[in-house]
Simulated assay, not measured.
Amino acid sequence: MPVLDGPENKVTSWLTRRTAKTRQMSKQNTNARTVPFYRQVADTIKARIIDGQYAVGECIPASSKLEKVFNVSNITMRKSLALLKEEGWVTTQRGKGTVVIRATEDDVIDIKQSGHFTDWLNWASGKTQNVDQTVLSIEDDRGSVHVRRLLNISEDDNLWCMRRLRSKNGEPISYHVSYGRPDSKQLIVKDDFEGTGSFIEMLQRKFPRKIIRIEQHVEAAVADIDIARMLHIEFGDPIFFMEHLYVDENEDVIAVTHLFMRADRYRYSTSIDLE
């Protein structure tokens, strides 16, 4: 079997190709589908609520005034307000108007990067965000050429593959596809992921060799048809794409996870020490 390049070089090359594809999809999506006016108006009002222009308990301007502010029709304005009500930002009170009832994006999950493994693990497992996890399948899979090269798998062998869906308040927020070497299926079973069991904790517990590093690669992307259906979003909607490489003490990549996360349900933050 030929000697493969290091995982960092392969990932960089693959991400370059994927980024080019993402940009092409984004351009096609921009030409084919624009964000509806009612969504633009609703998002703008929501941003004003979050910024404190419209406080909780106070009324937003009357619909007739907002129609003039945004230069939209009465029908568009009604759809915008209906969307804000559906998402729990405002409510209608008789004799008062449309009242703000929420001012924070409580359903947005921070992807916290502070350099501490515990912080990362709490996010990765969903333990601190009241996130539910469902294992959709564990099966053999051919996998992509990219993943096979990372795991150094021959063309004759199948990969172990697990697909998971994470939800919050009954709504899908992220889709995870993990790949491992063929012998992984003898070590990993569905029961290992009951509740909020995390992939890294399972690897640390079951694999004979110690995992010393996780490499994370993050990219802005757009949802294709399959991902859109899985996450209950529209084709072309923005998502976070992450690739996690789990590296053992021999500097071998023993597992790969691809994460597809709704951009409207996650926020990426990091802490950088200057000294």
Rank of each mutant, 00 (worst) to 15 (best):
E155G: 07
N152V: 05
L83C: 10
E155K: 07
D140L: 00
S64I: 07
Q93W: 01
G95V: 07
G126H: 07
R149C: 01
K127H: 05
L83E: 11
S144A: 06
R102W: 04
R142N: 13
I153A: 00
S63C: 15
D107R: 02
H116E: 14
G88Q: 09
I75K: 14
R78V: 04
A103D: 15
D106R: 01
R102M: 01
R78C: 02
A124F: 02
L81T: 08
N130A: 15
S114G: 10
E155P: 04
L136Q: 06
S80K: 00
L66A: 03
L121P: 08
D110A: 09
V135F: 00
S64Y: 06
V135Y: 05
G88W: 05
R148Y: 00
V72Q: 05
G115C: 06
Q113E: 08
V72L: 05
A103N: 14
W89C: 07
S114Q: 11
S154I: 01
S114C: 04
G143Q: 01
L151F: 06
D110C: 05
S73Q: 08
E87F: 10
T128R: 13
D140I: 02
D132S: 15
N74E: 11
W89L: 03
R78M: 11
W120T: 03
I111S: 02
L121S: 08
S137E: 13
E87A: 05
K96Q: 08
T98L: 09
T134R: 12
D132C: 09
I101S: 09
K65W: 09
E139D: 12
G88N: 06
G126C: 07
K79M: 09
R149S: 07
S64T: 09
V135S: 11
R149W: 01
S73A: 12
A103I: 04
L81P: 11
T104N: 04
I111G: 00
R148V: 07
D156Q: 04
D132H: 08
W123D: 05
T134E: 15
I75L: 13
G143R: 06
E67T: 00
A124C: 00
K68P: 00
A124K: 01
V131T: 15
G143K: 01
K79Y: 11
L84K: 09
V145M: 14
V147H: 04
G97Q: 07
V131N: 07
T118F: 12
S154V: 00
R148S: 01
T104I: 10
W89N: 07
K112Q: 14
E155H: 02
R102N: 08
K96R: 14
R102Y: 02
I109N: 04
D132R: 09
G126R: 05
S154T: 04
I109R: 00
L83T: 10
K65G: 03
G143D: 03
H116M: 13
N74D: 09
E87R: 15
E86H: 15
L150H: 00
E86I: 15
D141C: 03
E86C: 11
V145H: 15
I111N: 00
V69I: 12
V100C: 03
